[in-house]
Design a protein around this nucleic acid. Structure first.
Lengths: 150, 150
DNA sequence: GCACAATATTTGCTATGTTAAATATATTGA
DNA sequence: TCAATATATTTAACATAGCAAATATTGTGC
């Protein structure tokens, strides 16, 4: 008798209060608050920041790898990269070997933004670790990784 | 010496592989896959489904309560409710006491959709529980709740 | 009872999410 | 080699996210 039943005794879905998708959105919303605030004054969005971060960490790479790492769908990324190009924060050029591929790279201006925000970003990460706890945070990331098995 | 350092010895951000925001998106993406598939054949979106679920669970309510529970921003919700109105899945009327408030309620057609999908939705929830584990899932929800303290 | 601040919701605008279709280049096999 | 297929990316179209401003209604103090 562990099934969830509603008032009429019919099988019922878990309460939205304990819904996994909603819980994930809610948590994300809270996490992103300070990050958006940090980024607002340099005029780049959360997704643009992710792209710059990934390019800085893994170096120049093709669009598919970038999208996978930055967790973006390719159509979204295409547009985001276009605006980053206009801002002069990344470059893009066709791969010499396989001209279907587009290699994206961060520019010095792009790196400058990351470095400017380094302290603030670090402070946000530290704050999360303080509130959630280092161990529980590690555990969270482990559990979240398991969702890839779905 | 627990600080993250990069190759040059400078203070560095955590790898995007262990980034909390990205991990949350990635997990959510996986969870939503089957749910979107379930909803695609009845032509309603994930957000529309959330609104119907909350209305079914908590009954008629004003826009602010609904947005809080369905985890939507009011401007987004306004538009989603409009399309739900057009589909005849919800009703909306001004509160008698306070005419600034709009009371939203689910219709029988809206309830029918939920009931039609009940088994599938239950199966998805069960699958998640199997893959993640009941205890770890409960723990995940507890940790995610703590993010509200941020 | 009225100007004024506060609350609830909606609108407008730009950016992204999501799916399907289009485009361009590579690869394969007859 | 060439047509058929597969792969990489972009476009197109519609829905939602997020922020700021506008609207409508209510509450408050004078």
């Amino acid at each position: 008798m562990t099934d969830d039943l509603n008032a009429t005794g019919a099988l019922a879905l878990p309460s939205t209060k304990r819904s996994v998708p909603i819980a994930l959105i809610r948590a994300r919303e809270k996490v992103m608050g300070p990050i958006r605030e940090m980024l607002s004054d340099c005029g780049i969005t959360e997704q643009q920041w992710r792209i710059l971060r990934v390019l800085e960490e893994f170096g120049p790479q093709d669009a598919s790898s970038l999208a996978e790492r930055a967790c973006l769908l390719l159509p979204s990324q295409t547009r985001i990269v276009q605006t980053l190009l206009e801002k002069g924060l990344v470059t893009r050029q066709a791969d010499e070997t396989d001209r279907r591929k587009q290699t994206v790279a961060i520019t010095e201006a792009g790196q400058a933004i990351i470095h400017d925000k380094l302290d603030q970003a670090q402070a946000i990460a530290t704050r999360i670790e303080e509130v959630i706890g280092k161990d529980r945070l590690a555990e969270l990331l482990d559990i979240l990784e398991d969702f890839q098995k779905l």
